[in-house]
Design a protein around this nucleic acid. Structure first.
Length: 352
DNA sequence: CGACGGGACGC
DNA sequence: CGACGGGACGC
């Protein structure tokens, strides 16, 4: 649907030279590659290298073919390159294989841009789009800064996020500088524009800090459970009582016990604490250090303005176990950090 | 004094 | 609908 794929480099050179050998090596591989090297997108994930070769070699002799794979896992990344010996075969491959249905997939076969560093990492992520913004509108906004190779908008009930892949990374950088934090014509709030994550797919992704969390977590995180009065954890100095009232006396403003929340990002549940009055100097690592001794910490997040990067003075700490979270609250609410008195409580749902 | 994210989500 | 940047002159 939204698969803009205009590229300004379709060589239709109806020249001469339709042959194999061309060792005038100026930029790695042969000058004719611009006519013979193709990129194939939207392959079925299950396709293997040999099937890939088989399909494309049916059209003509190949110089090379690479199904691109994840280096670590060996999984297909669902795209690849084929380089034909003859340019007419490459053209033939485009005309006969582009749009080919392979199971649920419709593959795309097109000329590959010459390989270079400058085309890498040219994908932008755009947040803050209104719900159901036309892709066309996004493209016309971003099209000023370069050739768009691919674009996409994802909508949900809140609004949309978009992706714009440029031909060149510098174009993406320019667009980001120009548009990040701006309110584009017709929109009502600023958009956030940054480089897209390199791999935004399924399966394993970020677990950056989880490793050393685990080191500090001597207790199995386990599924969420509601500890009865007796199921306390000892070993922390502040654990005077072995019973915790649902509210404790932590924060009089708090109106309800914090619900457990499901952290779909990491696929686990936990208890989210609200930490207020952070000085600008305080970083997430400090909160890890501060809360870590009380039990397993899953996540720390200090909130910043997405545009300016300035801290908003509060953050969230997610802990695995309610009893440990309560101890942390009892212990750290009122604690002076960097000359500011912290307020620590279970997170409420003021904005959700 | 001041006060509750993140939209990486969908079809 | 969907992951567009491999590999690479020497085994």
């Amino acid at each position: 649907m939204n698969d803009t794929s205009s590229d300004g480099l379709n060589g239709h050179g109806a020249e001469n030279k339709g042959d194999n050998y061309d060792n005038s090596s100026s930029n790695g591989g042969g000058d004719d590659d611009i006519h013979t090297n193709l990129i194939v997108n939207y392959l079925p994930q299950s396709m293997k290298q040999d099937e890939f070769v088989q399909i494309f070699s049916s059209v003509g002799d190949l110089k090379s073919a690479h199904l691109v794979m994840n280096k670590n896992t060996g999984e297909s990344l669902a795209y690849g390159f084929v380089n034909y010996k003859r340019r007419e075969d490459a053209e033939q491959a485009i005309s006969t294989l582009n749009g080919l249905k392979l199971g649920p997939k419709v593959i795309k076969v097109s000329h590959a841009r010459p390989s270079s560093e400058e085309i890498k990492g040219a994908n932008l992520y755009i947040a803050g789009l209104p719900k159901n913004m036309p892709l066309q509108q996004l493209e016309s906004l971003f099209g000023k800064y370069g050739t768009i190779i691919n674009s996409k908008i994802i909508n949900d009930s809140i609004g949309g996020v978009g992706f714009i892949r440029y031909d060149k990374r510098v174009q993406a950088e320019t667009a980001m500088k120009e548009l990040n934090g701006n309110v584009p014509p017709g929109l009502e709030k600023p958009i956030v524009v940054k480089f897209a994550n390199p791999t935004t797919s399924q399966s394993q992704q970020q677990q950056p800090q989880n490793n050393y969390i685990l080191a500090a977590n001597r207790f199995s995180p386990g599924p969420m459970r509601y500890p009865g009065p007796g199921s306390m954890r000892t070993g922390t100095a502040n654990n005077r009582s072995n019973r915790f009232s649902p509210m404790g006396s932590v924060n009089p403003n708090m109106s309800a016990p914090a619900p457990p929340f499901y952290n779909s990002f990491e696929g686990s549940s936990g208890w989210c604490l609200y930490v207020y009055n952070l000085s600008p100097e305080v970083e997430e690592q400090h909160l890890w250090q501060l809360f870590g001794p009380f039990g397993a910490v899953q996540k720390v997040n200090i909130i910043k303005d997405p545009v300016t990067g300035n801290t908003k003075g509060y953050g969230f700490v997610t802990m695995s176990n309610r009893d440990e979270a309560e101890i942390a609250i009892h212990s750290l609410n009122g604690y002076a950090l960097d000359n500011r008195v912290l307020q620590v409580s279970f997170k409420t749902n003021k904005k959700r």
